[in-house]
Design a protein around this nucleic acid. Structure first.
Length: 242
RNA sequence: GAUCGAUCUUUCUUCGC
């Protein structure tokens, strides 16, 4: 009934316990929580750091064939974020077994391997997408760029940026913010600045993250004057006079 | 029956481990 709506609307503000009780209450009364609601609760548990409860719910859903692509994606990401990579792969296998492998799930695995510095696994995960007949999207590319950038693998990163165009996609604000951060990490702040220009040429609006990344880039390179300059500039931009 | 909308994936910060 309306309990689905209540959970979806208020779930984020309610104690997790209450949400769980409500969900169980619905099951007890044979009111079936819909798939979105169940997935929403699963995500709540994950965000609350209650992996044990999340796993319990997940396994319950699996055993009753009620796990869908979002369910598997949520769990794969949860394990990936915790760097429980073998568990994550189990989820991928489970999802594959029932034909519920999604692009977000695969992207979550890319990110997990990338952030773990396991570039070989990341490449394999990328190749694996083909076997699921899934094409990498812009998020996939952003994940790869971030992974290479944060590890100072500038050549690989730039090759991946080329791949975006080759795939017929266009970089978005995430891409540019990641690149600005990456060149900063590599102590190439003027390359970061170039990226900001490109971003503006594409009519994308730099946000607070953009400026923070650029400021850090100059700070890391020891150019505190330029950093201060951008800091003042960003304050003017992001706090327009009223 | 189809499609769309609410739930999963990527950038800075804070906080946890």
């Amino acid at each position: 009934i309306a309990a689905n709506t209540v959970i979806n609307a208020c779930g984020a503000l309610m104690p997790v316990e209450e949400v769980l009780q409500m969900l169980r209450g619905m099951e007890a009364k044979r009111h079936r929580a819909n798939r979105v609601t169940v997935n929403f609760v699963l995500q709540l548990l994950v965000k609350a750091g209650r992996m044990e409860d999340a796993v319990e719910l997940f396994e319950d859903l699996c055993s009753r064939q009620r796990a869908d692509a979002v369910t598997f994606g949520t769990m794969a990401n949860a394990y990936g974020k915790r760097r429980m990579l073998e568990k994550m792969e189990e989820v991928v296998r489970d999802a594959a077994a029932v034909g519920q492998v999604s692009l977000p799930l695969l992207n979550a695995t890319l990110d997990a391997y990338g952030k773990s510095g396991l570039f070989g696994n990341m490449e394999n995960a990328l190749q694996r997408m083909k076997s699921f007949s899934v094409a990498p999207d812009l998020t996939s590319f952003n994940i790869l760029i971030h992974a290479y950038g944060m590890s100072g693998m500038v050549a690989e990163m730039e090759a991946t940026v080329e791949g975006i165009k080759a795939a017929g996609l266009k970089p978005d604000s995430y891409t540019y913010n990641i690149l600005i951060s990456a060149y900063g990490e590599a102590e190439m702040p003027y390359a970061s600045m170039r990226i900001l220009q490109e971003m503006q040429e594409e009519s994308l609006v730099p946000d607070a993250i953009t400026y923070r990344n650029l400021i850090s880039a100059f700070e890391r390179a020891g150019d505190f004057l330029e950093a201060a300059r951008w800091s003042m500039w960003s304050k003017q931009i992001t706090q327009p006079t009223m």
